[in-house]
Amino acid sequence: MKFEKIRDLREDNDKTQTELADYLHIKQTTYSKYELGKINIPIEAFIKLADYYNVTVDYLIGRESKKK
């Protein structure tokens, strides 16, 4: 499953994959694979990203259309 919202939020906030990878304590290549849907994103990472962007996890996974 591809998670376009995490890429869109990153780009909208002028962040790089490296910055988000550092925040999540992972490699940039791993973060890239998250965005492309090549590997599953651990729930802990979803929660951290939702907190970082001040959105819900449901928004990140596409279950709701409003950020908050």
Rank of each mutant, 00 (worst) to 15 (best):
K68W: 10
D58S: 15
K33V: 07
Y52G: 03
S65G: 13
P42W: 01
K68R: 12
P42N: 05
F46D: 08
I47H: 12
K68M: 11
I43A: 15
E44M: 05
I47Y: 13
N54H: 13
L24H: 03
K33D: 05
P42S: 04
F3P: 14
G37Y: 03
Y31M: 00
Q17Y: 00
E11L: 15
N54D: 14
A50F: 07
F3R: 10
R63P: 08
I41L: 04
D51S: 13
D8T: 14
Y53N: 00
T16S: 14
V55Q: 04
K15N: 09
R7C: 11
L24F: 07
K67F: 13
S65M: 12
K48H: 11
D8K: 14
I41F: 06
T29Q: 11
T18R: 10
T29E: 07
K67N: 07
F46T: 08
K38A: 05
T18C: 01
P42Y: 04
M1D: 07
Y34K: 01
I47E: 11
Y23F: 13
L9Q: 06
E35D: 12
K2P: 09
N13E: 03
I26C: 00
E19M: 04
K48G: 02
I39P: 03
R10L: 08
E64K: 10
T16N: 02
D22F: 04
N13V: 00
K27S: 09
L20K: 01
Y23V: 08
K15E: 08
Y31V: 07
P42T: 03
K68C: 01
N54I: 07
Y53A: 04
K38M: 11
A21M: 00
P42A: 08
K38P: 06
L49V: 10
S32A: 05
Y23R: 05
E4F: 10
K27N: 02
V57I: 10
R10W: 11
G62F: 00
K67H: 12
I26L: 00
E44P: 02
E44A: 11
D22N: 12
I41G: 05
F46P: 09
K67Y: 14
T30D: 02
K48S: 05
Y31R: 00
K67S: 11
K2E: 14
A45C: 08
V57N: 02
E4I: 12
G37I: 11
A45F: 06
G62S: 07
R7Q: 13
I43Y: 15
D8L: 14
Q28D: 02
V55F: 06
I43K: 12
T56H: 02
A21P: 00
T30Y: 06
I47T: 13
K33Q: 14
T29I: 07
Q28M: 06
M1F: 09
S65I: 14
I61M: 07
V57D: 00
F3A: 13
V57E: 01
H25E: 06
R63L: 10
D14W: 14
K38E: 12
T30C: 02
I43H: 14
F46L: 15
D12R: 13
A45N: 13
L60D: 08
V55R: 05
F46I: 07
Y34R: 03
L60K: 04
L36S: 08
